[in-house]
Amino acid sequence: MTEDCITYREFTPHPLLADYVKSYWYFSNESDTVHSFDIMPDGYFDLLISFKSGNIVDTQLTGIWSKMVSLDYLQGQIIGIRFKPLALYSLLDIRIKDILNNYCSLPLKAWGLNDEIIETKSDKSVLEVIKYIDESLLLLIKNEKEDIKLKYLFEQIGESSGITSIQSISDSVGLSARHINRKMNELIGISTKDYAKIVRFKDSLARIKKDKSDFIGYFDQSHFIKDFKKYTGFTPKEIDLGADVRFLQYYDFDNI
């Protein structure tokens, strides 16, 4: 794969969107060939806006990935919004359980976004598009619908890297583990325990880029390797996240 034809950048959302949006990102493939990329489970879901010659050609919503998937990208550009699960309740008021490990087409009007404005701004710069999306999402925040207990649940799982037991979180929240599990399944299509495992795995990826024997958060190294193979099909020693552009989110573009 020719790395110099691939561009990938991430951008930080407005601070008021921090509970709902992990990041905005931009991808560009300038070659005439199809490139395949391996997307790792990370506990987020994305809205993908695909461009060709400055025109929007498709908009897709992905579900949560509970396994590594390989996707083929053609020549063109994509601007993505990487959402946190809490956005489903307090920002977007939708559910994605039916597209677990999958995606569906979704018109931008459903998000309060205007195709024509985005296309006009895309002729100027990616930053102009992202600024417009950022400002539009700020208008969608539904503070009156904020579920404090659900927010606390996601915060505890995230801050503990998925290690804190679901029972201890349910005790702190004041909801039964069964109720929390039902709520999680209704939102994203997987159990609270499975979501926490994905978060633990996602946080381990940043560490193994530096040290492939770092299995902090797991009972032992064999448990870590077993979980890693479950999500990727590989052992930690068999992949190099920072040196292989197939792992787009983890590739070290600055070192090209």
Rank of each mutant, 00 (worst) to 15 (best):
D38Q: 12
M40S: 10
P41M: 09
G43P: 10
Y44L: 06
F45R: 05
F45M: 06
F45T: 06
D46C: 13
L48T: 05
I49W: 14
S50W: 10
S50M: 12
S50Y: 12
S50L: 12
G54P: 10
G54D: 03
N55A: 13
N55E: 15
N55I: 13
V57D: 09
V57R: 14
D58M: 12
T59E: 08
Q60E: 15
Q60A: 15
W65P: 00
S66Y: 05
S66K: 09
M68C: 12
V69I: 12
V69A: 01
D72L: 05
D72K: 14
L74A: 11
Q75P: 00
Q75V: 00
I78E: 14
I78G: 02
I78M: 12
I79P: 03
G80P: 07
I81T: 05
I81S: 01
R82M: 10
R82V: 12
R82A: 14
P85C: 09
L86G: 00
L86A: 06
L86K: 11
A87Q: 03
A87L: 02
A87E: 03
L88A: 03
L88E: 04
L88N: 04
L88P: 08
Y89G: 09
Y89N: 13
Y89W: 11
S90N: 15
S90W: 05
L91Y: 00
L91F: 01
I94G: 01
I96E: 07
D98P: 06
D98R: 14
I99Y: 07
I99N: 06
I99D: 01
L100T: 08
N101V: 02
N102D: 15
Y103I: 04
C104A: 15
S105N: 13
P107F: 04
L108G: 04
K109F: 05
K109T: 13
K109E: 11
G112A: 07
L113M: 11
D115Y: 08
E116M: 10
E116L: 11
I117D: 03
I118Q: 01
I118V: 06
I118L: 05
E119I: 02
T120M: 14
S122P: 00
D123I: 05
K124M: 13
S125W: 09
V126Q: 09
V126Y: 10
V126L: 09
E128T: 08
